[in-house]
Nucleic acid binder design. Structure first.
Lengths: 206, 206
DNA sequence: CCATAATACGAGCTTATACTCGCATTTTCG
DNA sequence: CGAAAATGCGAGTATAAGCTCGTATTATGG
């Protein structure tokens, strides 16, 4: 069995063929998001999600084998949204200097995380297992890696793949600090400047 | 009700008075750790923990009101262990240069996380809610803040409290990358160098 | 050494959540 | 239109985990 095949507990049971069933699936995902945010992962259950979605449990189980699958599907949808924002930013960054590129991308990451911070917090912070090997991080890492190669001349470290991973991590935690755990004495603006400083300091240090 | 009071669901029900009951409590915590590591938070339950600890469920409930309390207590114990390692390092760092201090502390953090990486991963990565406001982070942050003040002359940014938080975050994620998610093509040694570079680059950049 | 308190035990009751299945309703298409 | 397929429904059952309580065992201290 090839390991690219998704686990049976996280895949759709069957694909919706008609319009209304596609609506049902969408409603279920919306319901999942609402319940997750309101009650947290641990207190989320399929009956609750069905109610929040305005759908019967039976219908829910037509398409999803269980809670894990709901969250996995929602996570995929959310990842697609994030990636779209990021890709737009990367596209707009060609031709800029290293410093301007870093500034623009960090701003984009903050924007992307501001789409639905609460949902993001639950998905990334509370959900165990959750197969994160399916795309987003790897794709983003590759994008960053490419950008770094384009500016290789102004970057001190040599192993750019490692550097890409490190930069991703730095940006990710600090954006979480800014957006997911905001504090009055730690305004997003100030933090954004610090993130830029940290990344540039790392890249340019000889 | 003062909010410094711990939640009823996470406190010990009663304190063990005799020697053997202290052993029981310790055994329960050890059992909790084993089960958490083997099965993950979601599949950990009180019956299982009692069995793993060689104790009856009844005894477990004598001292802990439930699963959350078990994990909270274990987390506290684990935090104390980490803090001990860190404090030793901070004590040994007085008089060193900024660069040497950073090197030493990062090494210490890596060492501390290597004590029981699997348990650490579960506690920090899988457990929701878990009151992290109770000390460790704040204490560490204060330590770092103090060290930064001592080297103020060689640090570019001015808001040292913010800087302390940022540094903590950077070190924490990157150490996780190194220790909790190790990869052959990403040796701990190499990553340790990158962490030092990142922190110094951030602190010294003007 | 006895009385009393502390600790330990674990079968079984309770509750929450997962999930099914037979039937009702809607859509598709010849 | 009418038959067959797709979708929707939700009461009801199964299961897993939480937790208690009556009883047995071990310690304390007078």
């Amino acid at each position: 069995m090839p390991r690219s095949r998704k686990s049976a507990v996280t895949t759709l049971r069957k694909s919706p063929r008609q319009e209304r069933s596609r609506d049902t699936v969408a409603a279920i995902l919306d319901g999942t998001a609402r319940v997750l945010v309101r009650r947290g992962y641990a207190h989320t259950n399929t009956n609750l999600v069905a109610r929040a979605a305005g759908v019967s449990v039976g219908s829910l189980y037509q398409y999803f084998p269980g809670k894990e699958a709901l969250v996995a599907a929602l996570h995929e949808r959310h990842a697609r949204d994030l990636l779209a924002v990021m890709d737009a930013a990367v596209a707009g960054a060609s031709g800029l200097s290293l410093e301007e590129t870093v500034r623009a991308l960090i701003h984009a990451v903050i924007e992307a995380h501001s789409l639905d911070p609460e949902l993001h917090r639950v998905l990334e912070g509370e959900v165990p297992d959750l197969d994160r090997s399916d795309g987003l991080d790897d794709v983003l890492c590759e994008r960053v890696h490419a950008l770094l190669r384009a500016h290789r001349a102004h970057i001190a470290p040599t192993d750019l793949e490692l550097v890409a991973q490190v930069v991703m991590r730095i940006v990710d935690t600090l954006v979480h600090l800014a957006v997911i755990e905001p504090r009055a004495d730690r305004p997003v603006r100030a933090l954004e400047r610090e993130i830029v400083r940290a990344v540039l300091g790392y890249l340019e240090r000889r």
